[in-house]
């Protein structure tokens, strides 16, 4: 307050001049960017039209698609798979459904007449010498027992891909503390995954050579055969698969209606071939030629 002049002087100058000028000077810089912004934003300002949501999957008209008999498709697939390791290449089926996007999905497992994968090693935890253990052995389990199995696993020897536990042995299994070894491998038996069972023999038998399938995005995909299969073997497998699928669909009939739209056969290294449901047609090559080794 000692020297009020420097503060007062500008104020007095403002008061002396016209009021409109300083106001315009203050406002203009803020107006300019606003105007340019408005120009640029005019395009994006319009709200985007919301796409109408669909509750079914897109279906294509199969009239434009060339469909193949099984033998013809196999001839092409075997040619595309030339020189590959026959153990690693598999035939695959893709079944397209006419169905809702949201809703119950088909999920099941089945045993094909000619199993795709037969080398699944199964471990069964059941009291040695019991009826269940005998059943498991007979059904094809590799490892059966209790304490000896536990000791083996604790040492780190896990030579199996599936593990099943009999209900009576569950307490013993939990006491052994194997969750640390088996858990990360996804092998720990539990009732939730259906690997703690009463009837061991049936479960093991179903597991050997059985494969699971489920519907994803309106398509069911499953490996149905080894590359070395003959057309007849493939025919049986495809038939078995389709029959089970139709039964599944029929079971769901009261809740939701599903229809089979398209059946595609492909393999690991080949394009997909839409099947027309026939085994062979007039121009197909003899079946014998496709039966030999690759």
């Amino acid at each position: 307050m000692a020297n009020p002049r420097p503060f007062l002087a500008p104020l007095s100058r403002i008061g002396a001049s016209s009021i409109a000028i300083p106001r315009a000077e203050i406002i203009r810089p803020s107006i300019l960017p606003y105007q340019t912004l408005r120009c640029a934003s005019q395009k994006s300002a319009a709200p985007k039209k919301k796409k109408k949501t669909r509750n079914t999957f897109l279906q294509y008209d199969l009239k434009h698609a060339e469909q193949f008999a099984l033998v013809d498709a196999m001839q092409y697939i075997r040619a595309f798979e030339v020189g590959r390791n026959p153990a690693s290449s598999k035939y695959e089926m893709h079944v397209r459904l006419r169905t809702l996007k949201n809703g119950p999905v088909i999920r099941n497992r089945l045993r094909l007449p000619h199993p795709v994968k037969t080398d699944v090693r199964i471990c069964v935890i059941a009291p040695p010498g019991s009826k269940a253990a005998e059943e498991a052995r007979a059904a094809g389990a590799v490892l059966v027992g209790e304490d000896e199995v536990f000791n083996q696993i604790k040492e780190g020897i896990v030579e199996f891909e599936r593990c099943i536990c009999h209900i009576d042995s569950l307490a013993k299994l939990n006491k052994a503390g194997l969750g640390r070894v088996l858990g990360p491998k996804g092998l720990m038996p539990s009732t939730k995954t259906g690997t703690v069972v009463n009837n061991v023999g049936v479960t093991v038998r179903n597991m050997v050579g059985a494969s699971e399938y489920r519907e994803r995005m309106g398509v069911i995909r499953m490996a149905v055969g080894q590359l070395a299969f003959t057309p007849e073997e493939m025919q049986k497998n495809v038939k078995a698969f389709m029959d089970t699928l139709k039964k599944d669909i029929a079971q769901m009939q009261d809740r939701i209606s599903k229809e089979i739209h398209e059946v595609v056969l492909s393999s690991t290294n080949s394009p997909g071939f839409t099947l027309n449901g026939e085994f062979k047609n007039a121009n197909s090559i003899p079946v014998k030629e496709l039966s030999g080794p690759l």
Binding site: Q75, A79, F80, V82, G83, L290, G292
Partner: peptide, 20 residues
């Protein structure tokens, strides 16, 4: 040769085994 021509050979001669 394997990638481009063997598939064609195999398609025309399905009964001849081809090994790599």
């Amino acid at each position: 040769f394997w990638r481009t021509m063997l598939p064609r050979i195999k398609y025309r001669n399905p009964s001849v085994p081809i090994q790599i």
